[in-house]
Design a protein around this nucleic acid. Structure first.
Length: 434
DNA sequence: CTAGCCTTGAGG
DNA sequence: CCTCAAGGCTAG
């Protein structure tokens, strides 16, 4: 599907953002479907290892967590492998001391950790979630792209990605007791899995750090922070400042198209491009490009006006009214405008650097490859790069600034979804002076 | 279903 | 005894 085609779908997007009541109804409906689906797959599962998935929504590949039996088989195989003498001879201190460092935060959602649960420092919530998932052999489906952000406030939005993160960070399924016996000590073989997974994660972190060092060596951050580099991306927005373009649905579409084209071209030329796994066709087919458009407009406005008062609420309202012409503004439009202005003011307070803008853009458009495999994907890799940048550039503001940027990502996705769903995608464009 | 608090029991 | 990490219970 071409970009122009996906742009043409702007006005016909299915409604994904609704009132609380409707959301609750949708959630309930989704869960009913999911239960039905789980029963169906259990009944279907006979001699085949691979599940053939029902094409519920036609074209989108489904993201399901592997079932617990399969994960348990993988763990036992792993245990057989690591029960070789060379690993048994290792000193037993490493696991305890390594985990001590990270004991205060949940390794899944960053909430306050209450101890080591199933081999990982986690909060009570993630502990309970992991236990319920394993005990009830739940299979979860991701409605997004399998790279949902899991933090304290968002952890309940996607069970698939939460469980995926639990496993990826090293939680051990075998630690959930089959006999449900309370108390007592963890069996030796499970302790061995804890130790092995912890060491594996250490290795991954080490590799990531090596990649960072390589990036720092090539002055990547410096190159991002140069105004001229970012300036290229603003090319198609600049005429908007001087009212050289009359805003219509058509002109908005073509500006978006050109800005996206420029972004992809620019992005592909970056030195680290080959190390990041981005599927641009997915980026086009899905609506990720619209998130980027909203972000770049905000950033462009911030660069040009620097203060939020460049436009008043009433002026924007007037423009919205003019744009819709004969149509009257619904209460929905007012609500969207309120939300939009609130969001805009938080954006103007952040004072993003060019590097932050670039990394946020990449995070916004990023899609992991759509497989069921639980693996360390490049979304987390970019998050780590951002984190490293934050620690180096704004050491005194951490971790607040980093967390703020992550929540900002979620906000931008939410506001973009609202704009598209309610056919208000022109709203950000109306902020330009005329 | 979630998550905070409670109970349990082996090992130090 | 105490500590830790399992499972259980239950308001929301």
């Amino acid at each position: 599907m071409s970009l122009s085609h996906s742009l043409s779908l702007l006005s016909g997007f299915p409604s994904l953002y609704e009132d609380d009541l409707f959301k609750k109804f949708k959630l309930k409906h989704h869960r009913t479907l999911q239960c039905k689906y789980e029963i169906d797959t259990r009944n279907d599962r006979s001699s085949f290892h691979e599940r053939s998935l029902p094409k519920a929504d036609g074209h989108r590949a489904e993201l399901l967590t592997p079932d617990i039996d399969e994960l348990q088989r993988q763990e036992s195989a792993l245990l057989k492998c690591i029960q070789s003498p060379k690993i048994n001879n290792d000193n037993n201190m490493s696991f305890a001391t390594n985990n001590q460092k990270l004991y205060n935060l949940c390794r899944v959602c960053n909430d306050r950790a209450t101890g080591i649960h199933y081999g990982l420092a986690t909060c009570e919530g993630c502990k309970g979630f992991f236990k319920r998932t394993v005990q009830n052999k739940r299979i979860y489906r991701c409605n997004g792209n399998g790279s949902c952000i899991i933090n304290r406030s968002q952890r309940n939005r996607c069970q698939h990605c939460r469980f995926r993160k639990c496993i990826m960070q090293g939680m051990v399924i075998a630690a959930v007791r089959y006999d449900r016996a309370p108390g007592g000590r963890t069996p030796a073989n499970v302790m061995q899995l804890y130790k092995y997974k912890n060491e594996t994660n250490e290795l991954i972190n080490k590799n990531v750090n090596e990649k960072f060092n390589a990036l720092f060596d090539s002055n990547m951050f410096h190159c991002f922070d140069q105004i001229s580099t970012i300036d290229i991306l603003f090319d198609h927005l600049r005429p908007l400042l001087n009212s050289e373009i009359v805003l219509t649905q058509e002109s908005i579409k073509s500006i978006s198209l050109l800005a996206i084209d420029k972004f992809i071209y620019w992005f592909r030329s970056l030195p680290f491009y080959s190390t990041i796994n981005i599927d641009f066709s997915q980026f086009m087919i899905n609506d990720r490009w619209s998130n980027y458009i909203v972000l770049i407009i905000f950033y462009f406005l911030k660069m040009n006006y620097s203060h939020i008062h460049f436009i008043s609420y009433s002026k924007c309202l007037q423009r919205l009214f003019n744009f819709t012409q004969n149509n009257f503004l619904s209460s929905l439009s007012y609500r969207i405008l309120d939300q939009f202005f609130y969001f805009l003011s938080t954006f103007f307070n952040i004072h993003l650097t060019n590097t932050e803008f670039t990394l946020l853009s990449i995070l916004l458009i990023h899609r992991s490859n759509q497989s069921n495999k639980i693996h360390f994907n490049s979304f987390e890799y970019i998050c780590q790069i951002l984190h490293t940048y934050e620690i180096n550039r704004f050491p005194s503001e951490q971790p607040a600034r980093f967390n703020r940027l992550l929540s900002f990502l979620e906000q931008i996705q939410s506001i973009t979804q609202t704009l598209i769903t309610h056919q208000h995608f022109h709203l950000p464009f109306l902020l330009f002076s005329n």
